[in-house]
Write a protein that binds this DNA or RNA. Structure first.
Lengths: 263, 263
DNA sequence: CAGTGGTCTAGACCACTGG
DNA sequence: CAGTGGTCTAGACCACTGG
């Protein structure tokens, strides 16, 4: 097994990107394909250091990446362990809904409902500022089945070169990040998720009974300097969607971390 | 300001815990109290290294901690920036629901509904194993207002020394982690959150109309070796609770990260 | 261009696990 | 006890930002 590791690494013609990411990828593959089995102890950092001809700090950085991804964990004085499958499997599904749709062979489509220039409501103005806004409402479909109604607000100054077909073919992240309209890339978002009884219009659009349960997400998206750029509302039918998340570390609350009381 | 940093650090009688955590705490305090203002560029790593008489790697480790907490972010070739307040504020609320209740002066209470020894259903057995289970159902109250119905399953072998009053006064995390009944501490959990129409019994228990929207969380809790120890179900009335979460990095999906289609 | 963060090295000492 | 991961140092080179 050790020689296998060594061979893989040495035969690679040229390293792309940082060394620690390559090492992390190498180890991740071996965990996924079972070469490194669940609950198995990894070779020690010193051994990996020799194997990969990298310093111990580089090895540790690779292992930290895998720890964050939920593949391994460490115990001081003992070693690094491969996390067992049930936990890993849940975490492995943390991909985007688009990836998931691609995986199961479902065709995604966006349909624009309307697009308007508006003066912001007080709530929107507080988040994005007191300026003219573009509001776009869309429906997202999976194999022509509607699974989300999405409304996006953004300063109209940023959207003056966008067309309706842009909105059907791209996400706002793609549009804003690729066409030089913002100084800094979008980098973070905070969202609030709640359970609601679906409103009449959304019920019709999504083809579910009026008042049936739905997940509602309110999201504010920030650029890399921390300025709010986008505000969006998502409504998902309750029977079609679920939200998977992880807690770790010392703080084990009765409620999912992030859940809070309102009013 | 620089001398202030230096003084604080040098006058500390004795460092507790790792150096990088102390440096992180110091910087965090200054961000919170405004000494380091929003969007301000931090002193460079080299300068901080001199100020704190620590190596650059130690400084970087402290900054990475703060980056993970959402206080700062970096741009290569430019520097470390203090993230602006709107984003930080949302993230700062990532505390537990218990902390939040303590903050606003609300008194928490647990009420045990019932506690039974049962043979596991197929679903539970798949997660926790084919063995005798204890099932405890509780109601959580905030100032006597019920806000959650919680059901916990665990192998009865682990619970043989617990009493009903233990269940009223402690969480299972506290019970299992503090009384030597498990070999390894509970360290991670994965949960699935969905929107449901509340069932009749829960509606009565929580004092809401039958069929009204609710958040339902299914959680599996693992020990540090990755073995599943606890399974729990939480039901929260939709009008009382919301779930706050963050996305960051390159992957910006239409849906909240972790959201997926079911069926 | 000088200065920044991103990566990496070769060493060191410590607290901790298991036998 | 020997071996492990956790922390830390003093250096180095690179890619990148801004002026």
């Amino acid at each position: 097994m050790l020689s296998l590791l060594w061979t893989c690494y040495n035969t690679s013609i040229r390293q792309v990107g940082p060394r620690y990411l390559n090492i992390a990828s190498e180890l991740r593959s071996q965990i996924i394909d079972g070469t490194l089995a669940a609950n198995q102890v990894l070779p020690s950092e010193a051994v990996l250091s020799t194997l990969y001809e990298a310093s111990r700090i580089t090895i540790r950085k690779a292992l930290e990446v895998l720890r964050n991804e939920g593949y391994v964990d460490s115990r001081q004085g003992f070693g690094w362990l491969v996390v067992s499958p049930p936990l890993r499997q849940s975490l492995g599904r943390f991909s985007t809904i688009e990836d998931q749709m691609a995986e199961i062979g479902v065709r995604p489509r966006r349909k624009v409902l309307d697009s308007e220039i508006r003066w912001p409501s007080k709530e929107i103005a507080e988040i994005l500022g007191e300026q003219e806004m573009l509001r776009v409402r869309r429906i997202n479909l999976a194999d022509e089945l509607p699974f989300a109604r999405v409304t996006v607000w953004l300063p109209s100054a940023l959207a003056k070169d966008f067309s309706l077909s842009d909105y059907e073919q791209n996400s706002f992240y793609q549009l804003l990040n690729t066409r030089n309209v913002i100084k800094r890339p979008l980098s973070r978002a905070v969202q609030t998720i709640s359970a609601i009884a679906i409103a009449e219009e959304d019920a019709k659009l999504l083809g579910v009974p009026n008042g049936s349960p739905a997940l509602r997400c309110l999201r504010t998206t920030f650029d890399s300097a921390g300025d709010a750029i986008l505000f969006s509302e998502y409504v998902f039918p309750g029977h079609l969607t679920e939200f998977v998340t992880e807690m770790s570390g010392e703080v084990m609350s009765i409620a999912p971390s992030g859940l809070r009381l309102v009013d």
